[in-house]
Design a protein around this nucleic acid. Sequence first.
DNA 1: CCAATTACTTAAGCTGGTTTAAGAAATTTA
DNA 2: TAAATTTCTTAAACCAGCTTAAGTAATTGG
Lengths: 190, 190
Amino acid sequence: MDNFIKHINKFTTISQPEIETLKSATKTISIKKKDLLLKEGEICRANYFVEKGCLRLYFINEKGSEQIIQFALENWWLTDYMSFNNSSPAQFYIQAVEDCTIIAIARNEQDKLLTEIPTLEKYFRKVLQIAYAASQNRLKFLYGYSKEESYLHFTNSFPAFVQRIPQYMLASYLGFTPEYLSELRKKLSQ
Amino acid sequence: MDNFIKHINKFTTISQPEIETLKSATKTISIKKKDLLLKEGEICRANYFVEKGCLRLYFINEKGSEQIIQFALENWWLTDYMSFNNSSPAQFYIQAVEDCTIIAIARNEQDKLLTEIPTLEKYFRKVLQIAYAASQNRLKFLYGYSKEESYLHFTNSFPAFVQRIPQYMLASYLGFTPEYLSELRKKLSQ
DNA sequence: CCAATTACTTAAGCTGGTTTAAGAAATTTA
DNA sequence: TAAATTTCTTAAACCAGCTTAAGTAATTGG
């Protein structure tokens, strides 16, 4: 819970009694590498905060291979927002890339919680504003740069993270085949 | 201002005095087709609500051509969130695709406004949650589908919108060349 | 600690989509 | 309403990145 409370305090102020309310309205879950929090077709009933570890959001494409849309490291929220917002069937899987500690806010608790602790509205608004900025930036890279440039940019920007995940996941996230990633790495190391 | 107030009332409730405060804290701007609200390199000092018309967010890529990241129709918010959040130089241009009526909330008014009208925190949080869901969905299409499939999906989903914009903008938004779009249209009409 | 599985590499052939260039159609402006 | 400009089309040559297939390295689990 420590990271979570610190994270909230970065964006707003929360009192001790409010923290207690928050604790009783959330669930802390420990999951193992490869465990699934959500499967395609299910209704996504929670929003997940990564206290420790790493999650990924992906779907299975027409060819039957996994396409990663997003990773979430410590202090990031992750959910299938379409499914979470509308209680519609999820389009994505959410899976642990490493052993994780996750804090979950259930959909049907969220409204009540935000009424009891209005300052959390500010917290979530700010967090979403930052996440949305990141997604605009992401689109800029996807559209504006070649696969080679995207790879270079990503590895230069997040060298530690690249060490944490298998290469085939990096390839999937960047939108290319593991074979091509292999070729690129060879080419760039020469 | 009508669409704007209606839009707020879809997500939260706002009182008459609050509406008055809101009116005095925002600016309604009329702009002509092709007018720019933001240029790359400037600090983006406002968030823009489209009361009427259509905006686009784009950047100029390495080859010197415009790459469209987003459109905003009636009832959508649009800004360069990275620049807006951090007062950093904008990465994008924002331009009117048609003559527009825009409601602008200045960055330095926003914090004050959200303190005076706390229910607006809820409004923006919900709006961002929907926008973020849309962007996850967008990424799914970008990654999972061929250019032809993206084109078919987009034209089937938003036939009226496709009529509103020039084809070269659609091509840019979908991430391909106008020449290829032309080829596709020919092929698909046969 | 060995077998099975999962992850990574290499290389040849292929294809979806780009580039280039030139002309036709539509829209804007005077 | 004609000239200027902007948008759209056609077609051929080209290439970045994919597919396929087969082999090697690293993990996992029994």
